[in-house]
Design a protein around this nucleic acid. Structure first.
Lengths: 109, 109
DNA sequence: TTATTATATTGCAATATTACGATTAATATT
DNA sequence: AATATTAATCGTAATATTGCAATATAATAA
């Protein structure tokens, strides 16, 4: 099939999975890391920095933007991308919440 | 293509992406949450709890096991799964490290 | 030995993802 | 206006993922 049965999961499970899925490609990790490092708008040089073709980077950016992980502002002929700080906080707490579900007790196996 | 160009990324970027990808499906989130909640081995009742067919759950478990996120011990005719605590710590710090790359400065857009 | 039970594997159909060349759209520059 | 620059979109090929029925395997029970 190739089609996830989202309807049988909770909203939180689907939300978490969607975020994780967006982070599930090294190019998108690299893009986010670069945006963090630059701390500010970075535009088409992502193509150079990362080393994938322009349409490919554009596609990855679109995915990150669809999930509100980044924002894009048009500046002349170029587009300026940056982390969506407000939303990133939510993502962080959602993920941390999940990661810390981890109890201190030992597993039985 | 459908084939990720892993060779152009750093080991850390690929590692992060692989983990995120494994978490990028609500069924796998649900499995992990259940294992956490039970804090101990849980076996075939995952099929009931989650509501996907047995082969599908088995496949998701395999993926989680391949990434060392969970362990599986045979106990009689059933298999007992649980979180791989040691590795989970590494995963947590890797992800937290990434999530906290976030500087305090404002984005420019 | 012959069920029975629990899980894994195989095979397959439907869909999604990744990557990129070609093209388009929008703004700048000359 | 004509051209250049930048990024988005379209189309497409190759591959991956999701889900399940059918089957196989392994361990116990009768």
């Amino acid at each position: 099939m190739g089609l996830t049965k989202s309807e049988i999961f909770t909203a939180e499970q689907n939300e978490l999975a969607k975020i994780a899925k967006a982070l599930g490609h090294p190019a998108r990790i690299a893009i986010l890391q670069h945006l963090f490092k630059m701390n500010s708008c970075v535009c088409g040089d992502l193509v150079e920095v990362i080393g994938l073709a322009q349409p490919t980077i554009s596609q990855h950016l679109k995915e990150l933007k669809n999930l509100n992980l980044i924002k894009g502002n048009i500046e002349g002929t170029s587009v300026c991308y940056c982390i969506n700080q407000e939303h990133w906080k939510k993502v962080k707490s959602l993920l941390n919440n999940f990661l810390d579900f981890n109890s201190n007790l030992d597993s039985c196996c």
